[in-house]
Design a protein around this nucleic acid. Sequence first.
RNA 1: GGCCCAUUCGUCUAUCGGUUAGGACGUCAGAUUUUCAUUCUGAAAAGAGGAGUUCGACUCUCCUAUGGGCUACCA
Length: 480
Amino acid sequence: MNSIRTRFAPSPTGFMHIGNLRTALYAYLFAKKNGGQFILRIEDTDQERLVDDAVKAIYSTLKLANLRHDEGPDIGGPCKPYVQSERKDIYKKYADELVSASHAYYCFCTKERLDTLVDGTGNRRYDKRCLHLSPKEVQEKLDAGTPCVIRQNVPSEGVTTFSDMVYGKISIENKELHDNVLLKSDGFPTYNFANVVDDHLMGITHVFRGMEYLSSTPNYNLLYEAFGWTIPQYVHLPHIMRDKHHKLSKRHGDANFEDFLDKGFLPEAILNYVALLGWNPKTEVEKFSLSELVEAFDVSGISKASAVFDEVKLRWLNSQYLKELSPQRFHDLALPRYRSISTPVNVNLLSTLIQPRISALSDIPEVAGFVDCFDGYSLEMFDNKNAKSSAQLAKEVLPAVIDTLENADTWSNDALFGALEQLTAQLNLKKKQLLWIVRIAITGQLSTPGGASEMCVLIGKELTLKRLKQSLSRLCALCG
RNA sequence: GGCCCAUUCGUCUAUCGGUUAGGACGUCAGAUUUUCAUUCUGAAAAGAGGAGUUCGACUCUCCUAUGGGCUACCA
């Protein structure tokens, strides 16, 4: 059985980053496209950087994104445990094996000595001093309990070449490589070691990870070779950038998945957008469900250059998804965002009006702001050359509008629109002229989630008339 | 500093030696419309620079520039 296995191996050091999410997505897509398994492994070997609840965030993100793993800490599997801190003895065993074969060695150098190894350019390169300790000396130090690490013994000559499925063939001279620490003095492995051991033991066939690991991949291959293990296929991914110069980072606010959910983006839209950042489906289709992505995904479409995250385009995609939601589903999602509205309005109607007009749920307070906030809007809003309306015209026409609406006995959109249409004819105006004025006069907002008659229905007869009168008196005060 | 990687419209990208360099978001301009919004049509907008290779280069090679990454007992 030679099935494809990919893994997502985050370290629980904070929220789920958008870049991490994309790495998980691609690994998932590739596995599923090829009928393989997608494994979740928690890389918690840095005990100092652990963040409470970070593991919880990983689970919840994968769940919300609908990226279901086949094996992992929570659901088990044949390669358990899937948490690196629970695998310490495994790493120790393999590290010792490497030491016996001279591919690794104990190092007792102190931080102070290491600091003396800095070269002219400020870089530090270990000088292999402890490699030359005799077995007896090593044993003595070990027996004395001297703190130590295990280092990889990298050959100082030759070239290590590997082939990446995205970046192609890459060669690095061994003399550029460092004798990386494999096992830390606290007994935990470094990423540099744990990822190799675990990827092998867990049968990972394709390694998806950020391109920052490109330069250390030769170190890993040397390890695979020392063990005599099969080297996996590598799929290094370009970075997602905040702008031309900066990677998306946790430090800069809204770079993580949960923040985007809070902003009112749908998980499907985020996933769809992120999939397209650095990968192209080779068709002109841009909207993909998860299963369509599985179908369409191909490593050959992954680009080498980093991509700038564009929230404006995400908003566009999100608006597409929002429009497709059933009215009930949309209403359920929007409801929590109406909490801040104190004026009683028909929220069902509000949802109906808003659904096709917003691109993120977080737009709701702004779009519906007029419901509560009306006083003091700028009277210049009446001036609109496209609608051929003006504040002056508004002042002249509003009394008739008030009269018409006061006498409206049915307060429905059809009835009100009909009444206003009739008034338009009476006054010898264009529909647009009058309706622009009415809409501004009762909302005080340039862009509203519906036309004039719809806004009247939304806020009700009483408030409509109150606001019309209020607007009229302000206009009179202004124009004299 | 050394090493690795990258470089097409503002942004995401197509092009795998011969194209009027295509699409999408955004922008702008028109049109449609039961009022806001939608929708539709159109426009502006790109191969970092320089050498080669070639009949011909965005595409291949080299150099330079710019950007990013690595250079930790972080991942």
